[in-house]
């Protein structure tokens, strides 16, 4: 997946996406960034958002209260049993929290960005189930390409009419965020 041809293809795809992005309305900040699965991915996205100048509130276990002042919602998917354990949350509770956030955000017209930035190592049944849930409500999806080698996110994005943007490296997701937020 990391051979030169693939890099070229993905780079072309990314450039194409970035070129196309300004045609869409820019998302508004502040963004509420939360995790779906309690892996470190959400923290990585907070770092990227800060670097991209996207005002944000980061709370890995955010509930509906944290959605109050948010103008967009970024949900970073990645299931980690260690992370869930440290947060004192079980898988069912995590699904319920995320679903309530998604339903509420949709009812308030808050756009949702789904992100999967830890690549292939962070795929797995729980992560995939969370992705299915989040993509159903998402307006945009940003995914590290090695997590989409089987086309999983491509299929979900097509099924739910989500704008999918693939990046070769996690760091490249920052540029996509910057464009999405019109910075």
């Amino acid at each position: 997946m990391r051979n030169a041809g693939t890099v070229l293809l993905l780079s072309t795809l990314l450039v194409g996406v970035l070129a196309a992005a300004p045609a869409m309305a820019a998302l508004e900040a502040p963004a509420l960034i939360t995790s779906a699965g309690q892996s470190p991915g959400a923290l990585m996205v907070r770092v990227l958002a800060d670097q991209a100048g996207v005002a944000n509130v980061y709370d890995a276990t955010a509930g509906l209260d944290q959605l109050a002042g948010a103008k967009s919602l970024i949900i970073v998917v990645g299931a980690s049993m260690k992370g869930l354990g440290a947060a004192g949350i079980d898988v069912d509770q995590e699904f319920a929290r995320i679903e309530s956030l998604l339903v509420e955000a949709t009812s308030r017209g808050i756009p949702v960005v789904a992100m999967h930035v830890e690549g292939a190592p962070r795929r797995g049944s729980t992560s995939d189930d969370l992705s299915v849930l989040v993509l159903e409500y998402a307006d945009h999806a940003i995914v590290r390409a090695d997590g989409n080698e089987d086309g999983f996110f491509t299929r979900l994005a097509e099924e739910h009419d989500v704008t999918l943007q693939l990046v070769e490296r996690t760091a490249e997701a920052g540029a996509v965020l910057k464009t999405l937020y019109g910075n």
Binding site: P40, L43, M44, V47, L48, Q51, G119, R169, T170, A171
Partner: peptide
């Protein structure tokens, strides 16, 4: 790693984990 400046400067790149 992110919370310690020395660790972050060595083991993260621009604040992100290496691949």
């Amino acid at each position: 790693l992110l919370s310690d400046p020395e660790l972050s400067s060595i083991y993260l790149k621009d604040g992100l984990p290496p691949m």
